[in-house]
Every structure is written in C-alpha cells, then in structure tokens.
Design a protein around this nucleic acid. Structure first.
Lengths: 228, 228
DNA sequence: TGACAATTGTACGGTATCGTACATTTTAGA
DNA sequence: TCTAAAATGTACGATACCGTACAATTGTCA
C-alpha cells in the first residue's frame, strides 16, 4: 500500500517536480485514496522526501552487486563504467528526480543522510580500482578519485537525463537501442583513455564508430566484441 | 517590458518548471502586472515557450563569437571546449530549463525550430575542426562529430546541471571557484584524450591534479599554464 | 466477545491559481 | 486636436489544490 503510493509518487515527482506535482493526481492513480496519503506521509513534502529516499535505496541495492573478483584494475574499471552506464539507463526516474533537485539547489538531497553514504561508497570503489591500477603501472598517477567518479557520473547521467533534448536535436543515432550499445562502448572507452598511462593507451583504448569500420574478420579477433 | 517579464519568467521556470511556476508569482516580481503577461503572451504556455526560445536566442548569440583564426585543430578544439565549458557556467538558467524539459520528454523543445538550428551549428563546428585534425594526423579517425559534440556537451552540461547534488555529496572541491579553474583544464584534457591519435596523445594530454604535482620550475616551461 | 488501535471513506473549508470582463488610460499618427 | 490602436488597472468567476474534520470500518489480541 505504502509502496504503491511511493511508486506512483516517484513517477509523478520525477516528471513534474515537487511544486508541479498534484497530490490529487497521485491519489487518482493509486489504488488507495488521498486520505491515505496524508495518513501515511503527513503532507506533500513528507511524501516527496520519502519518494526521494526510496529511489536512493533502490539505487544502493544494486550497488554492491558488481563482482570484481579476479579482475585486474583495467577490466574492473571497465566493468564499473558499464555498470554505472546500465544503472542510469534502468532508473530514469531516479535520474529525473535528481535533475529536479538540482534546479532547486538540491536542498532536499542535501538534508538526507542516505545520499552521502551512497556517494561515498561509489567514490571509494573507483578509488580502490584506480589506486591498484596506478600501482601496477596501467593508470597514470595524479588523478583524484572524486574527479574520476565525476567523469563516469557525468557521462552516464547525461546519457539518460538529456536523451530527449539530444534526440530532438540530432535524431536517435545515439539513443536508439542499437545506438546505445555502441555508445556504451564509447563511454567506456572515454573513461579508459582518461586514466590509462600514455604509454599503454594505444593498446587498450580503441573505440571507433562501427559504421565507419570494416566488419571484423575473423570475428574472434574483433577488438570491440559485443558486451555481455 | 516584455523583456522584463521574460527575464523573470525564465528565472521562475528554470527553478520550478512549467507546471510548478505560478503566473501570479511572476507578476509579483515584475514591474508590470499579471494583466500584461496575458496581454503579451496569451497564456502560461505561451509565456513558457517564449521564455524557452529567448534563452536559446541568448545562447546562439554567443555562439558565433569564438575566434578560431590561426589556430590549428588541436588548439581550436581546446578553445571550443573551453568556450562550451564557460558558456554553460554562465547560463545556469538555460541549463536548468533544458533539464526541466527533459523530465517531460523535451516536448516543447522538440516543437521549436530555433533549437535544431542551434545544435546543428554546434555539430558542424566541431565536425570541421575534427576533420581537419584527422587530415593533419593529430586526431584519430573513425569518430562521428555528433558523438564528439555529445561528449563535450555531457561534460559541460553536467558540470552545471548537477553541481548542487555533487557538491552536497562530495564537498566543493570541484565546484568552488578555484576548483572550477582546475576542473576546466581537466575537462579539456578529457576531450583531447578522446580524440588524439594514440601516437600523439602522450605529448598533448597531460592533466594531473595540481595538488599532487610539484610546482613547475622554471614556470615558463609549465605544461599546463593558467588559461586566459 | 470486548476494547483499543489501525485504517479508511466522505465531505468540505480555505486558499491559490488560471484566465477574463470591462472600463480606462496612454500612445501614435493623420 | 481627433481618432484608432495599444496598453493597463481592477475586480472577479471558476476551478484546482492542499489539507482536515468527523464518522465509520477493520484488524488485533486478550
């Protein structure tokens, strides 16, 4: 019941934002009544806060799932970027709510504890991979983990948050289903190029747009095989 | 008068979005009255549309300003990224309105002609620089201009659009005034690393966080001098 | 079953908000 | 100055919207 309300609330808030969302509209779309919304959440802001946190909880759930066991830093970073890319695509409401928050100085985000923890975890994760990569000589030193995390976030977030305006301006080359598969490789490649030590970048980073390449043959030597 | 209304409207819409914005509030903040808003713009949606387009117009104004004369493709691309970075920082309302649009599938953006033109111009610009860079052997071939533009946009847009949530999560290392100066170099470097041909990347792309480096001496040999 | 808490339905009060009717003033040009 | 169009002020109608009062029902546990 509460969960039902929250789900509808998220879908409304993610589109209209806090002040644009109507409680009556949420009630209408819910199996329950407006009365219950106030019963459970007190008022509109209470509902908003819980909706925001519930999205963060869902986000955090998936976070620990990545299995880096047996991966060297280069592959681990690849996988981390792939995961982040996929995660954002799978949670457009999460992305949209954060976008709304930012247009209002992220005041409600800033008040919540849950967020800080989630983010800290993400930076720690990328920091460990990066440090190990530097130790082994694959990654160039001198980058801050937080900036590396920023880069991954920026690319993966924007890919979802701005997909409509970008498609409207440039067609759906990038945002079609097929386009996203290629774009995912491109984003991974961007991050790899950002961190690889210069001496090694040539052999690791090799994304080029597929339509400009000859098909690979033999296929098992293809430098950019389909992912998963 | 009309301009005054539009300016206030932009600042309201950029924060609250279309449905969250109150016409009475705009009227209150304006030197004129609510009556005049309806007189000039018909209704709320009309005002919204004009506010959106006026921001795009302002955006386009600055666009032609960049002077690439005498620059080789490498420096031209650097300058383009720097300009884009600065431009987004200087127009947070523009960024916020696009963010709002995206949470509603960018329907109003998609209806406007002005946008498409603006964007097409940006892609053409980066495409020409890129093509020349490839011809001269500085840039690796195989990238699509639209994807390159996407990359620059993503980094510059996210830097502004998500600054509040990012600061809330990680402090203002990146988003303080001083931090942004360094971050600008980092973003430029990211893009350069994305396009440089592998054989040349070592000598062109060399961003490292300043706090991790020894100060350069002699200073005139510093590989990353302060910009402008 | 009885007592008490948890849950839910119905109706409505008060205000916010969009948009307009109507009268009036100001401006521009002949 | 006369006239028509442009601009503006005031008041208000209609509805949307948040939140609540009050009663009623359902669940729980001894």
């Amino acid at each position: 019941m509460k969960a039902d309300i929250l789900q509808v609330a998220v879908s409304e808030f993610s589109v209209k934002g806090l002040s644009g969302t109507r409680i009556d509209e949420i009630a209408r779309r819910t199996a329950t009544s407006k009365r219950m919304i106030y019963y459970y959440f007190g008022d509109k802001l209470g509902l908003y806060r819980e909706a925001l946190e519930s999205e963060y909880r869902r986000a955090r759930e998936g976070e620990g799932e990545i299995d880096f066991s047996g991966l060297d830093p280069v592959d681990a970073l690849r996988r981390l970027v792939e995961f982040t890319f996929d995660f954002h695509r799978e949670h457009p409401d999460f992305v949209a709510m954060i976008a709304h928050e930012n247009t209002q100085d992220a005041v409600h985000l800033a008040q919540s504890e849950a967020i800080r923890k989630l983010n800290q975890g993400a930076v720690k994760q990328v920091g460990e991979i990066y440090a190990e990569g530097v130790r082994r000589g694959h990654f160039r030193p001198g980058l801050e983990p937080v900036r590396l995390h920023w880069t991954i976030s920026a690319l993966c977030f924007y890919n979802v948050s701005n997909r409509h305006s970008f498609s409207a301006g440039f067609g759906d080359t990038i945002h079609s289903e097929a386009g996203q598969e290629e774009h995912r490789r491109f984003v991974v490649d961007l991050v790899m190029r950002a961190v690889m030590s210069n001496s090694q970048s040539a052999e690791i980073s090799r994304f080029v747009s597929q339509e400009r390449e000859e098909p690979c043959s033999p296929a098992d030597k293809c430098p950019h095989p389909p992912l998963r």
